[in-house]
Nucleic acid binder design. Sequence first.
DNA 1: CGAGAAAATTGATCTAGGTCAAAGTCCGTT
DNA 2: AACGGACTTTGACCTAGATCAATTTTCTCG
Lengths: 245, 245
Amino acid sequence: MKHASLIFKNHMRCADCPIRARAICAYCEPDELVALDAIKSYKTYGAGEVITWAGTDMEMLGSVVSGVATLSRTLADGRRQMVGLMLPSDFIGRPGRKTAPYDVVAANAVMICQFNKPQFEALIATTPHLERRLLDMTMDELDAAREWMLLLGRKTAREKIASLLAIIARRDGVLHNRVVKGDLRLTLPLSREAMADYLGLTIETVSRQISALKKAGIIMLEDGRHIHVPDFAALLEAAGDDSDS
Amino acid sequence: MKHASLIFKNHMRCADCPIRARAICAYCEPDELVALDAIKSYKTYGAGEVITWAGTDMEMLGSVVSGVATLSRTLADGRRQMVGLMLPSDFIGRPGRKTAPYDVVAANAVMICQFNKPQFEALIATTPHLERRLLDMTMDELDAAREWMLLLGRKTAREKIASLLAIIARRDGVLHNRVVKGDLRLTLPLSREAMADYLGLTIETVSRQISALKKAGIIMLEDGRHIHVPDFAALLEAAGDDSDS
DNA sequence: CGAGAAAATTGATCTAGGTCAAAGTCCGTT
DNA sequence: AACGGACTTTGACCTAGATCAATTTTCTCG
């Protein structure tokens, strides 16, 4: 519950930004970048810190630069489902919307390149490159959401865990421009509870199925958060996916 | 397995179109409508007809005018999950994409206002009103997908059924500009199997839970496809939703 | 109208994953 | 180094929904 205080810093140049090539600004020309630069500020959130509560005004709008944020919805009796996993380069918030439809929480230390909302909304209306990029990113997210729906509705607990590990490995690979295959190591950016919320399971089932994958030789645990995958193809096999991106 | 043959007809004027106000063309000015009109054609599909197979080239691109189409993904062993329910005014297809990521199937007789793909892609690049509308619709779909994820991951079978009925009632209300409340009647556009695929359940569970809602007095069946809801608020209560759109 | 097929309901049983409970582990703090 | 609290794992048991199996109802089409 103790939170790192917010830190503002404006010194990073977009040219040096680690997510420059994949974020909302990916299609921007130098002059457009200058306009974006003028309305941005970097903000950090500590692990567990709530960035926006569902139902409240959302003045939040920006890109995840580092760390992981989650979007989630909660039922009246406390059942919670994660509905978005925001990794570096993902865009959080919807231009034109006033109220947040879900909680936005920092899963671990997160840095966000945050935009002034009215200014960003004005900019997007006059910058086709920005709008086009937002459209492409939104469509990608919709595809990911649909893949996730298949997971939630039809996969077994074991397949769900394997799928999540594969998703994290793939996103990681994309970010670092590596091809994901063969033998690899990965760091889980989520607690067991967050994994359970992602997968529509309980913490206990997550833990048991990780143990089961370990027993099956598909993964090895170095410690709770560090996983060694000796054969990525075997992990995909366990995830139940046939053949796709 | 017998399918109505495809019927092409180009006589409907956009001004008379039942989905004019909510479809991809909603923001278009008269001259933009003329351009759209030039590349459109109406096509009908019979109940059960496959519009596009996952993995094949998708030359499909257009708006549902009437009827219902579904998007779904299938696992190697046949488990199927619906990932999109396309009702009148919804847009099917992604400009710029070559291969369909899911099966598109007509749940019942469907009429689609179909666009020539390369021409539509060219048009959208030069028509901000079109691109803006597509962005808004895609974001709405993403919101709906996230709501659906909450349903798949955390709701009970009974809540799932009640939620689906509420969703259909709401969409119906929006289309006919009616406020959805109090006492209402609705026609299910889906078979029990399609409902099961939507909800991540089996046919048997769908049937049992519909019977349970009937026994609880929350719905009354006139016949398998026609449902009388005496109190919409009670249905929402059964759906487990607190208070939202 | 009536035969056959497809869709839907209902029942009996089984099981994957949830729930409840008890140990471990892994921290950070003093 | 040792205390305290938050995670994580593991075990024992239970239940919601799946599976298997009949019916029953509803459509289709001659």
